[in-house]
Design a protein around this nucleic acid. Structure first.
Lengths: 237, 237
DNA sequence: CGAACATTTGACGGGCTTCAAAAGTCGTGG
DNA sequence: CCACGACTTTTGAAGCCCGTCAAATGTTCG
């Protein structure tokens, strides 16, 4: 975990402009943002923050991806969000500081831009249109949580896994002539911790999908979706 | 489902002032709000809105309570929120209209104040401090969903039910000399659909809690919590 | 009072978890 | 560059808990 190396050459212009939150800003305002940004890099598995810490920063993923998770009451990890390049995580509480109610780890080598909450707050005062973007962000987070609840409460595990694969294909998939190829930053256990089952169950169900010719497990972290229609039928929505 | 009866005598002053969203408004602004409000009453079981409808209104619970739910992919009802007197449900998307991604029913005779989204939007323009309240509301909704996910993904059903009972005691409980008495607007099936199990399982686990002297089922909809500490130990957090 | 609905309780079966072990993959250092 | 150890993935077998089905008892409300 080092402070500043990859991104410093661009003087943060890159990471600040990448996030939609700042997309409405004029160049000179963007420059102001850039001056507020500090930079950190994380190795795979590094803890970015932990539940209970004071939530006084805003995290923008520059490269890489992270998992944001909470522990269930019987001690298992439940993933809430997977965030990748261009996405960010911040608190909505513009007034008082809060504490993190979840933890986050890097899934791969990841560089993150950090803005102090206090700096962000004063930024909003001079650029109030950002608060609309913050509301859009809140809306997206609520939608993603409501969708996750729908998935988690669906009893049929094959349906849950099909839904996960479809979501992952949107975020990490690349179209090829043979189908959609997904390079996963997630382990089987991560996938399991996202849909609320054990790693063994994920492994078994993926094997089942493979023998039904729905997917092809090229390598354990590279999955080819051969028959997206069957996945969609399973997941419907 | 009638339009306007109970509340009209107060000219909506009561319901508008009850919701925290408008707590910062001066009296004359509150009066403006009041003029924008229409009123509806629902009987137990009535549908308030359904998934897929256009989301162009803001709903404030005046009296009674409602359940907000989504269907899982295998057709079961999953409750997302229970809302009661003074709480409200609205869309966060201030710009474009959206559609409801969930449905809502009245749990008991319920009166609801309705504000058109377009009216609310212009209200925000003249009273921008309301947007901060909207963000607080978004924050609460996100927190409640993240907590619900934690509960739903905890495998131990007794822990899930203990957590539900504690939450219900906060919302509907009244302290008595014997413990906390909860008058539930929820059926066993509603409770089951909140924590993702069947009604039979809820029934069985409640009986088990009763024989462990943790609760007392006075009537099926009236539960006395005799030993809140054991419930807290189960639910920890 | 009676019909519709809600709750409780029992018995059984299935699917996921758990435990276990083997095979595969990754990264580091000699 | 390869070898070794740590970690990840796969697969098997057994057990348990919840869901399903069913029936009896309670409750509510016209």
């Amino acid at each position: 975990m080092n402070t500043c190396d990859k991104c410093c050459s661009c003087n943060h212009k890159y990471c600040a402009s990448k996030v939609s939150l700042f997309s409405t800003l004029a160049d000179k305002d963007l420059e102001k943002v850039v001056n507020l940004v500090t930079h950190k890099t994380f190795e795979k598995g590094d803890i970015i923050f932990s539940e209970g810490e004071t939530f006084d920063k805003l995290y923008i993923i520059n490269t890489g991806s992270i998992k944001v998770y909470k522990f269930t009451k019987d001690g298992k990890e439940q993933i809430l969000y997977i965030l990748k390049e261009g996405e960010f995580l911040g608190d909505l509480n513009l007034l008082k500081k809060d504490i993190f109610k979840f933890s986050a780890n890097a899934l791969e080598p990841t560089s993150i831009c950090v803005i102090q909450k206090s700096d962000f707050d004063s930024l909003i005062k001079t650029n109030p249109e950002i608060s609309i973007k913050v509301l859009e962000y809140a809306h997206d987070r609520i939608s993603s949580l409501e969708d996750l609840i729908q998935t988690l409460t669906t009893k049929d595990v094959e349906v849950r896994l099909a839904t996960l694969l479809l979501n992952l294909s949107k975020a990490f998939g690349v179209k090829t002539s043979k189908g959609i190829e997904i390079s996963l930053p997630l382990t089987r256990e991560d996938m399991a911790n996202f849909i609320g089952v054990t790693r063994e169950t994920v492994s078994r169900k993926l094997s089942a999908f493979q023998s039904q010719n729905i997917i092809d497990i090229i390598e354990s972290r590279t999955i080819l979706i051969k028959d997206i229609n069957t996945l969609r039928e399973l997941s419907d929505t």
